[in-house]
């Protein structure tokens, strides 16, 4: 069973990398880009097949390691 974790910066946390990407997009002629926020996606292949257990496990992984909840939000997709 596959799980996908999306880690993004919380609103209000300055994202200098997103700002730099936005600037580069402008240089390439892409007008009308209001903001760019950069995050990461983590794909996990799990041995078990119980969706509820997978969700609980991956949530715990996020809390303990995958996200820094001081500055980041996370969301989990199973399957």
């Amino acid at each position: 069973m596959k799980a996908r974790v999306f880690v993004t910066l919380k609103n209000g946390v300055l994202d200098p990398q997103g700002e730099a990407v936005k600037h580069a997009l402008g240089t390439l002629g892409f007008d009308g880009v209001n903001t760019v926020r950069q995050g990461k996606m983590i794909e996990i292949d799990l041995a078990h097949t119980d969706v509820a257990k997978a969700e609980a496990d991956v949530t715990e992984m996020c809390e303990k390691l995958l996200a820094n909840t001081v500055i980041e939000n996370y969301s989990v997709e199973i399957g």
């Binding site: 300055l14 200098p16 990398q17 001081v70 500055i71």
Partner: peptide, 16 residues
Amino acid sequence: IESGLLPGALMRNAGL
């Protein structure tokens, strides 16, 4: 900070 012994977070330098 990552261990929870100190509060806050350390992020990428504002000037990148």
